[in-house]
Design a protein around this nucleic acid. Structure first.
Lengths: 252, 252
DNA sequence: CGCAGTTTTGATTCATCTCAATTTGTGTGG
DNA sequence: CCACACAAATTGAGATGAATCAAAACTGCG
């Protein structure tokens, strides 16, 4: 993991134990994006401790009091919603540089669960203080609004997927999206480890795990990917993209 | 309409032509919520002209430059996303007091279309000025964040619907949601006019229009509602709620 | 009054779910 | 380090809910 190498180059010291947006390799993808050096220093002061989570541990749960948003420093998360009648829907998967917890702003209570899918670390950003700082640093305010807006737009994309795509189209979209996000983080666009189970993928995509598994197998037969359990290698990106193009008109 | 009565009590004058959050009957549901009288005055100065739209007219389109968000003053809207490959997904229906346009903040371009489903009127809120004012009025900043967050949470609810409900559950959820929103605006919880076609409902719910129509008919047979084209009367709200409870485990 | 758009209803097809059995992988304790 | 138990993933066969295709009825607009 290239990531580890980078981290080793930065000697551990006390200030680091608190936080360090300035040196974080996610800086360009995360909240500090677009801020000047002095502004990032302000943000650094605001960011509380980091918090480490083991695989399977909850970062927050539905109905927990909302106090902070979180920036994923390393690792992998899922968020899911539990409805009163027992339905369970995965609403997203978050990786380094992405922000978690904005669901809680509206009601002061979290409205979903956030769970680490592998050992992970987050930066804790107390929300009241973020709002204070945002009202002073206009770039920060503006950027925070952009982050929230993009979350809304992302959700619209998921609605489109759930509302108008068939199983294989959904999985292709999902794989291409992961590939693109890994690429943005300096990892291989073509080869990665899925941190979630088939059932979690299925929940996210509105499919049963068997259907997800079959779609994986189908892509493998067609030479688009090589899968072995959680390990995926994309052999033919244009081919995967073509899965989306052809047949028009399912429900949508 | 109680609404008209209220409006008549306020004599029309020039300042009203510009805007008037202070006297708007949507004040409690809209952006001014929670602001002091003086703060609302500031917001009033900021809110640009109102804009009237005829049925079928676009408030904005995908890729339009983002400059303002809009508060629905009266009428009814839909938003939809068009994907490159021609898919069309309705992402929401907006009524008085609700905010439109936040999809554009992230990229400075709108990422969906907003169309009036009946003759409507919106208040234009220039976004740059809103951000300025928000950095001065903390209650406004905070409330705006809550509005965006609630939009995210609403979207999660739609994901749950699309990802884990069957056709009749989706329609029941949709009707109960409309009922509840009409109630909050002082209208009957049980009787209303749908402003959208079966096809638009279907797109929103991830179903074909025929399926929507059949579900309506089924609910009518079961005595849960009385439908005639766009006119809906809910006869048995608990009954509709029970549609959601029973069978567990569809995809989700 | 007629025509276009919308809605309803029916018959059939098809994608995905369901149920079930098997294989593979993973973690734990002897 | 192996064996066992458990979780995750695969694969098959059959059931089913929603899509599709088609036609008829209704609505409202010009």
């Amino acid at each position: 993991m290239r990531e580890n190498v980078k981290l080793k180059l930065v000697p551990l010291n006390v200030s680091q134990l608190k936080s360090a947006c300035a040196q974080c390799n996610m800086r360009e993808l995360c909240l500090p994006f677009g801020l000047s050096d002095t502004e990032v220093d302000h943000l650094d002061n605001l960011v509380g401790a980091r918090r480490k989570l083991k695989r399977g541990q909850h970062l927050y749960r539905t109905a927990d009091r909302f106090e902070a948003i979180f920036a994923v420093k390393s690792g992998f998360f899922k968020t899911d919603v539990l409805s009163e009648d027992g339905r369970d829907q995965v609403t997203g998967f978050q990786m380094a540089g992405e922000i978690l917890g904005m669901d809680g702003i509206g009601t002061d209570l979290h409205s979903c669960n956030a769970v680490a899918l592998e050992d992970s670390e987050v930066c804790v950003i107390p929300f009241a203080e973020l709002e204070s700082l945002a009202s002073e640093i206009r770039t920060l305010q503006s950027h925070f609004h952009k982050v929230m807006s993009r979350e809304i737009v992302r959700d619209h994309g998921v609605m489109m997927l759930l509302g108008s795509m068939r199983a294989e189209e959904r999985l292709a979209t999902f794989l291409l999206n992961l590939s693109q996000r890994f690429t943005a983080r300096g990892y291989s666009p073509a080869e990665f480890h899925l941190r979630m189970t088939r059932e979690e993928i299925g929940s996210y995509l509105g499919l049963k795990l068997e259907t997800v598994s079959r779609a994986f197998s189908r892509f493998q037969e067609d030479g688009l990917i090589a899968v072995q359990q959680k390990h995926v290698r994309i052999l033919n990106i244009p081919g995967l993209q073509k899965v989306l193009a052809p047949r028009r008109n399912y429900p949508g």
